[in-house]
Each structure stands twice: as structure tokens, then as C-alpha cells.
Amino acid sequence: MLAQLVDVSLWESVVRALIPVLLAAIGGLICERAGVFQISLEGMMLAGAFAAVAAAHVTGSAIAAAVTAAIAGVLLSLVLAFGAVSRGGNAIVLGVAINILAVGLTSFLLPQLFGVRGSFQPEGGVRIPGLVIPGLADIPFLGPVIFDLSILGYMALLLVPATWLFLFRTQFGLRLRGVGERPLAAETLGVSPTAYRYAAVITSGVLAGLAGAQLALGNVGVFTEGISSGRGWIAVVAVMLGRAHPFGVLAACLLFGFTEAFGFRLQGQGYPVQITDALPFVVTLVALVLARRRFRRLLDLTASTV
């Protein structure tokens, strides 16, 4: 068992599995810091995956695919921003509605645009390009695990310290946190909560859209209905478990990446696929119970007090 755990190829798949979740979760944590409860990551990720594949099919360009995915995420995020920030609607209900909308739109557009149902493989075999960093990739263990990723993979990992720097070492980060924690105080000091919240929600749209692009065009190069399969929700949980702190969120994503990779390994050894499917969610639920009493704010938010 232990020999399996330190196996390099397992850790390679851990990092691959965590990247889409991490991208989405960073967007979620920025929203959380700005005081917007963001649960439409799942839908934005799904829309991003579809948009990436559609754009890859039409243009044959990975850059166009990534940009289109980000735009799709932003368009959906604007629904949340407008409804929750401008109109004062219920962010939770809006998030749920956006997720349903994304499922409906992608499964509508799939037959409508490409004449297929279920899944679609774009022509040209476009992938998000990988980058092997010369020299560093030769380091034993670490090399193949974190220096042989897709462009979006590096972006996700670099965003962790970058987000930390932004939140805790810049004026804009301070204001963003102020908007989240004391919106009235921030407004009194001339900081517009609306502007910061829009920016945060749009950022999460970009990142969740890119997460979808990585999901669809990272390894497999195909869109299947429901391809996000709960990863956006796992990102929501990662924000909760990591207490909206970049490194905490990274740690939570590592846990999920590990679970998913480990599940695939079990599957490879003949265990039923359902164990792979359920494992990340079961581990997530257990982690939530173990980390209890951290979720007061969310509990207050969902109104069901205990």
C-alpha cells in the first residue's frame, strides 16, 4: 500500500485531477472574500468546457478555445453578478438556477450546433498545450509531478501564491476583503462594494471557464454532457474547507485530487467504477464533518440555524 502511495505516477495524476478544481476554487475564494456566495462554479465550468470544445472545433486554436471558455464563464457569472449584486436576489438560488441553465444550454447546443448527443469530439485534436520546463522536469519525483503540466496547470498553481499576495499584500486585496467583511465601512471609505463584487464574480467566471477548458481539452479532447460531474461543487467545498485562504484551498484541492487519483487506481485494480465515482464525494463529506464548526457564516447565510 505504502509503495503505491509514493509512486510518482499516482502523484502526477493527483496534480492533473486537482487543476480544474483548483482553478474554479480560486475564483470561488475570491468571491467569498468579496462577500458573494458563489455556487455556480459547476455550471460555469460546464459552459467553459463546451465553449472550449466548440471553439477548438471551429478555429482549431487552443488559445481561441481558452478565451472562448473564459468568455462563456464570464457571461454566466454576469447573471449572478447582476441578479445578486445589482438586484439583491438570493445568491444561492441564483447559483442553482445558473447551474441548471448551463446544463440546459450545453445539452441544447450540442445537438443544435453539432448534430450529436452525449459527447462531441472536435476536429483537429486541439489540446491545451503542455510545457515541460527544461532542467526542472528532470528533478526526481517533483519534475514529472509539477514541471510537466499544461499551460493552465501552471497558471492554477501560480495563482495560489499570486492570490495570496493580491489578497494580503495589495491595496486592492485589502479593499476586496473589506468589502466582504464590512461592506458599509468600505463604502464609507469610498470603496464601492458593487464594483469589487462584480470584479470578483467576473474573475470567478474566467477561472471556472478556464477550468472547463482544462477539463475538456487538457487530457482527453472531448466534451461529454455533464463533464464537470460535480467538480464545481467540490471547488465550493474546497473554499469552505480552506476557509477561503489560498493555501488552505490548495490543501483541500490536494485532498480531492488525491482521492480522485486514488479512486482511478483502485478502478485499475478491478474495483467497480462506482467506487471511483463516489470516493471524492464521500471523502469530501467526511472532511466537512471533521472540519465542523467552521461554517457558521454559511449556516447563518442559509438561515437554518441550529
Binding site: 465550493v236 469552505m240 465515482d277 469530501t284 463529506l285 461554517f295
Partner: peptide, 13 residues
């Protein structure tokens, strides 16, 4: 004190 909003959803999977 784990919000059921999220746990009820995760249990779907």
C-alpha cells in the same frame, strides 16, 4: 453544524 445545502447536494453523487 455542516450546512446541509452542500452536503445534500454532494450526496446526490
Amino acid at each position: 453544524q455542516v450546512p446541509l445545502l452542500i452536503t445534500s447536494l454532494l450526496l446526490n453523487y
